[in-house]
Design a binder for these strands. Structure first.
Length: 467
RNA sequence: GCGCCGGUAGCUCAAUUGGCAGAGCAUUUGACUCUUAAUCAACAGGUUCCGGGUUCAAGUCCCGGCCGGCGCACCA
């Protein structure tokens, strides 16, 4: 059976539903339209047939009468899932369903596979993720999550464009993987006969653009981290990073809470949301607490980056954490915070003043040189964003990289690699700048009440099927 | 990577203690001029994820493997 190469489509289901909302039962509009989409349901009744047509805007009923529709016999032989183009008058049936009264139709494509049970859809995770196209047809929640993801990114872009941020793109293929603490994927360039790493963060490139005079930049793009897959981790995920010259971390915290509030209001119409059955308010401003304060409250005694390292280590061991020899007081404090506090941070909160030891790209605090002007926002027990006043001093940056190199030498395969080109860039002068990173996938999970990151990624990473 | 759980018709799911592998939907055929997951009747549909083993007998028990979910580890 040959199928057409195009269809003179001129109407959408959603538009028809609103335009003809006032059409009364049994009334005919006199308007003929061409609609197209997928047949989702079919109800035959002798010389009548009703079908439910779905397009990208919604659904509308097709009403076929053998006396009116050309080729009525074949209309009733359409399969669920077939794509059709239909020409007919907009009417409302006697029983009140807005319909296109079929005058002629053409099958645009045949569905050889079905889309699961018409009531239960497709629920098998393996099938849903390996054949997401079928999942999207079968499951409204899947369509909704990916549509909201698109909306989130649109709102972020508009928000930042309105603030004169420029959207830029930086390399994904890098000679060294840096800008974050993570193991990279490796690949090879044949013509250059060179080893490359897929980026783990765009951070350093973006700051080099600030050095070059782009005072406000952002990038939304994929980053790759060679780590385990879990309900909250996909090996490739989408990071939004932005940098603004002349800002410090407090300015950046204001941006984050306002932007997230704006996203929630634009997309959900409210800042009051439910995640996995628990209420959360995303309303700005969010509380700000230092890591040392939160850790102190949790352990019931005053601890900070100035606490004796061995004492912090013993507090960790009491809690069953294995303490590595390379960890200083800063790393110990951070681990203590993660062990005792992180999972309990349900409503949005900023955790600030991370130790220098675990923040190799952050600028030291004006208050205390052992901690940095860094923040992480937490929500539903997870990190939502990470930002800081950027370290702009090339000499100090080199010292920090050298500390990282020592960690790497001690066996930490996630320690940051030294980037000479970045140090050279800082020597040309990075103005006071604040930076931010937000994991888009996790933000979308929050806004779509998704418990698994795969739900908000069109084609999540799956293990290839063995033979 | 480790632990727990799961995989039965195209889809959603049953199958008692180890005892003939089933239903609904989809598909096919037939009936039906206002249906709404239409209804009714009939036909057909199986490597019970794969490979071994125990047993008179395995979807069910044992071993190994594959894929997935959840937890841990790693991390954002």
């Amino acid at each position: 059976m040959t199928t057409p190469y195009s269809f003179a489509h001129n109407a959408y289901a959603g538009d028809l539903q609103s335009t003809y909302a006032a059409l009364t039962d049994g009334e005919e509009s006199g308007v003929v339209v061409n609609v197209a989409g997928r047949i989702m349901l079919m109800r035959e009744q002798g010389k009548l047939a009703f079908a439910t047509l779905r397009d990208s805007t919604g659904e509308i009923q097709l009403f076929a009468l053998s006396a009116v529709a050309a080729d009525f016999e074949n209309f009733t032989k359409l399969h669920l899932g077939d794509w059709v183009g239909v020409t007919g008058q907009v009417v409302r049936t006697k029983r009140g369903e807005l319909s296109v009264k079929v005058e002629s139709f053409v099958r645009l494509a045949e569905a050889l596979n079905n889309f699961g049970d018409k009531w239960a859809g497709i629920s098998d995770f393996d099938l849903r993720y390996r054949h997401r196209e079928a999942d999207l047809v079968a499951n409204p929640a899947s369509r909704d999550a990916l549509a909201k993801r698109s909306d989130v990114i649109r709102v972020i872009r508009q928000y930042l464009w309105d603030m004169n941020f420029k959207e830029v793109e930086t390399p994904m293929l890098n000679a060294i993987a840096t800008g974050a603490a993570a193991r990279p994927f490796t690949t090879h360039h044949n013509a250059l006969d060179a080893k490359f790493f897929l980026r783990i963060a765009p951070e350093l490139w973006l700051k080099r653009l600030v050095v070059g005079g782009f005072e406000r930049v952002f990038e939304i793009g994929r980053v790759f981290r060679n780590e385990g897959i879990s309900p909250r981790h996909n090996p490739e995920f989408t990071m939004m990073e932005l940098y603004s010259a002349y800002w410090d971390y407090e300015d950046m915290m204001v941006l984050v809470e306002n932007m997230v509030e704006k996203i929630a209001v634009e997309i959900l119409g409210t800042t009051e949301i439910t995640y996995q059955g628990r209420e959360i308010s995303l309303k700005a401003p969010w509380p700000r607490r230092t890591m040392a304060e939160l850790a102190s409250e949790a352990v019931g005694e005053e601890v900070s980056v100035h606490t004796d390292r061995e004492h912090l280590a013993s507090l960790l061991r009491e809690r069953g954490v294995e303490v590595h020899a390379s960890w200083g007081a800063g790393r110990c404090l951070s681990e203590l915070f993660e062990e005792t506090c992180e999972a309990n941070l349900w409503d949005p909160i900023y955790v600030t003043e991370h130790p220098v030891e675990i923040s190799p790209l952050s600028r030291q605090s004006r208050r205390d040189p052992e901690v940095t002007e860094r923040f992480e926002s937490y929500c539903v027990g997870r990190e939502l964003s990470n930002g800081f006043s950027e370290l702009i001093d090339p000499v100090e940056q080199r010292r920090r990289f050298e500390d990282q190199a020592r960690l790497a030498a001690a066996g930490d395969d996630e320690a940051m690699a030294i980037d000479e080109d970045y140090i050279k860039a800082l020597e040309w002068g990075l103005p006071p700048t604040a930076g931010l990173g937000i994991g888009i996938d996790r933000l979308v999970m929050l806004l779509t009440d998704s418990s698994n990151i795969k739900e908000v990624i069109a084609f999540p990473t799956l293990k290839p099927l063995g033979k």
